[in-house]
Amino acid sequence: MFEVRIHSRGGQGGVTAARLLALAAFRDGKYATACPFYGAERRGAPVVSYVRIDDHPIRVYSQIRKPDLVIVLDQSVMDVVDVLHGLKPGGVVLLNGIGPYPLQGFSSYTVDLTGIALRADLVIAGSPILNTPVLGALAKLGIVSVDSVKKAIAEMFSDPRNVQAAETAYRELVV
């Protein structure tokens, strides 16, 4: 089972990112569940969502303790949350940001999701949309296929700029 934990702030689309990733994995022919953890959050508060991907039906509902991959949509949560907590040794960290972010014992990747969203004018209520471009980055990391990412985004969003933003992130992420 491949387990993913997504850190973001309320309103940034972390929950939708989890659902998109689950849908893309499902379109790849895998079993997938997306379980957002709902606390007493509101807009701007740090939030966490979980995605599990497996070749077999998934029977686990409890929170992910030892993720294989951590996604950080907003680096400012790292001031208040230990995003590496429980991450498996050699695990992968995908950060929204500019420039390398080396993390001892883990493979880290950065991609400027905010910049991609702003350049594509993907903004809702003043916030750049991060959940569709991040899917492109996940395809580049080989978590899900590019085809399934495009399908998943198209199923949930009619605006074609969402798929384009994912393609941009796929191109821009250096692995």
Binding site: T33, C35, P36, Y61
Partner: peptide
């Protein structure tokens, strides 16, 4: 939440 808000096939 555990089921009402979890996505599965």
């Amino acid at each position: 939440f555990l089921l009402s808000h979890s996505m599965q096939s």
